[in-house]
Design a protein around this nucleic acid. Structure first.
Lengths: 337, 337
DNA sequence: ATGAAAGCGCTAACAT
DNA sequence: ATGTTAGCGCTTTCAT
């Protein structure tokens, strides 16, 4: 049969409430008693019943991870974040559920309400691009559901994790500049995503700092997909004055650019330097391997969840942790021809 | 405040137990009463408290989706299955949790036990390649946790969903044969995965049926990744007698083959036909677009979960549903040069 | 076909 | 620092 809290109490010769105190790391238990109770729990392999706990305590020990299912970024990115969130939740014995939501859909808020009413998550983790969807944030606040974000655009009082993507983008463009490139193109991601804006801003900043006026023909719209990278590259290669380097806003598009280069008979990096952003597994598998910015998605998911859990467990307020990027220089970039 | 079952009972002038009966679709409620109770629930926007329900009823209304985190197939595949499982769970007001497990890890079973003891899922959905991991299945049976599988290898009394991958592989190779190809290579997936075996078997079957003896040099090992496709293709292109067509066991590897073809100056499909398996989004974005087998992962996840839920809800026993494949002929395959 | 009473396993609020 | 009592919102069991 199932071992209950009451059984542990009996074994440790204390009251159920004391066991409960130990279970929840509460105060007012002597070290000696605490030790004895812990030993009894261990010996009996006691597992608290989550439903009983949440029914009596009105906390669910549940974290929901929300993501956009409409034009979500690469599924590998989300999968990694999910793994990180899960790891953090596991460590604190919280459970996690995932909820796809359609940002442009009319019943977005209704679905959110359903989620909250049906499952009572103690908190939620928001992933791009819904980290800054105003109606969502408003509703979460109204319903008193704490949240943490991965790469939020508004950094005001947000908690979670972020990376200085603009700085990173600037660094990678400066790498190209240092190689002698001047005609450097940029392939933008989905327009209103924070990631797209920061990366574009970093590109512009680096170009401006190098005294290069922006050539609108060199900045083309993509959509974070391989296919959009191919299309963007074709557009660039059709130019009279082709770029000598392309900075795509993510690795998938960079891969598309390399693909298109093949079509046009351009050798990377000899005829064309290409770089991306994210450091997906693909980046290392390509030949030549892709110069890119390492974005540790899994780690970011984990940190965001940890901040949320700190808040939920009354361990401080939760912060917006800034994590460092690192420029991965590989073989897809070389000196200008 | 929260609307409780008791409140609904009062509003409908019945006892709490009757509302409970209606909530759980139980018998012994007159149609008229049932209607009245349903109306009251609707009017009051009643949401049963999941914890109270599971505490009293000893069912969790929870389905866990298990996947391998060691050498999992493409994350997009799992993400799609996950979405399908989630959709089915939502429809029946079950919640879903995801659990990565490391198949080759020693504490696999311990982690499974922890999952079951901590969360008491009413059932689990198994995804490749852990659908046939004997210690797992054994433990699930011992602990009386029902399960359904996506593409299990042992079809004995499994429930879930499957596709005739061998037949599909045979069909795609027959397509190549019909185009006049004779030197057809195959890039195998991760060795012990069912998917790899079936696709290889289908390849062999088609070749044999065409009276072509197997050339071992034309069958090379891959690992389902883009990079492994590139490596396999380089091996094939180094052969004195190059193949005129390559059937890769999935789209990622097929993409790798096309990439390597570019390196070798081979034009697809003019110099080389390439086809894959899965019909990932990538397949349509490539140029030329990839001939492949459509495998509706999302739908498969949904069906597997539905079969499990049928079982859990006492609606029959759950079956192994066979879903049809469809050959997507695109531009990466053409007549033999 | 419907209801009354008891209790699932925990924690809140109040003792001591 | 520890214990007692009541009750979270449902379902079970057993009655009628």
């Amino acid at each position: 049969m199932r071992v209950r809290l009451e059984d542990v109490a009996r074994a440790a010769s204390v009251s159920p409430k004391t066991v409960s105190r130990v279970l929840n790391d509460e105060a007012n238990v002597s070290d000696e008693t605490r030790k004895r109770v812990r030993a009894a729990m261990e010996a009996m392999d006691y597992r608290p019943h989550p439903s009983a706990r949440s029914l009596a305590g009105s906390r669910s020990f549940l974290v929901a991870m929300l993501y956009d299912n409409n034009d979500n970024p690469a599924s590998t990115y989300l999968a990694e974040i999910q793994d990180g969130v899960l790891e953090a939740c596991d460590a604190h014995r919280y459970s996690m559920m995932v909820r796809p939501l359609r940002m442009r859909s009319d019943d977005f808020i209704r679905r959110l309400d359903t989620l909250i009413s049906d499952h009572h998550p103690d908190g939620v983790v928001l992933t791009p691009p819904i980290t800054d969807y105003a109606p969502l944030l408003k509703r979460l606040r109204e319903r008193n559901v704490p949240y943490a974000s991965v790469s939020p655009m508004q950094r005001g009082n947000a908690i979670g994790v972020s990376m200085d993507e603009q700085q990173a983008a600037r660094a990678i463009v400066e790498h190209l500049l240092a190689l002698g490139h001047r005609r450097i193109a940029h392939v933008i991601g989905i327009a209103d995503h924070g990631a797209s804006r920061w990366r574009l801003a970093g590109y512009r900043e680096a170009m401006a700092a190098a005294g290069l006026p922006e050539d609108p023909a060199l900045v083309v719209q993509g959509a974070f997909t391989f296919g959009s990278g191919v299309a963007a590259a074709r557009q660039l290669f059709a130019l009279e004055q082709r770029p000598t380097a392309v900075f795509a806003a993510n690795d998938d598009m960079a891969t598309g650019v390399m693909w298109a280069a093949g079509e046009y008979g351009l050798k990377v990096p000899h005829d064309l330097s290409v770089c991306g952003f994210d450091d997906t597994p693909l980046a290392r598998q390509l030949w030549p391997a892709l110069t890119t910015i390492q974005q540790p998605s899994r780690e970011m998911g984990k940190i965001a969840a940890q901040q949320l859990l700190n808040l939920l467990r009354g361990r401080g307020l939760g912060q917006l942790v800034e994590i460092p990027f690192s420029l991965q220089i590989r073989n897809s970039t070389a000196r200008v021809p």
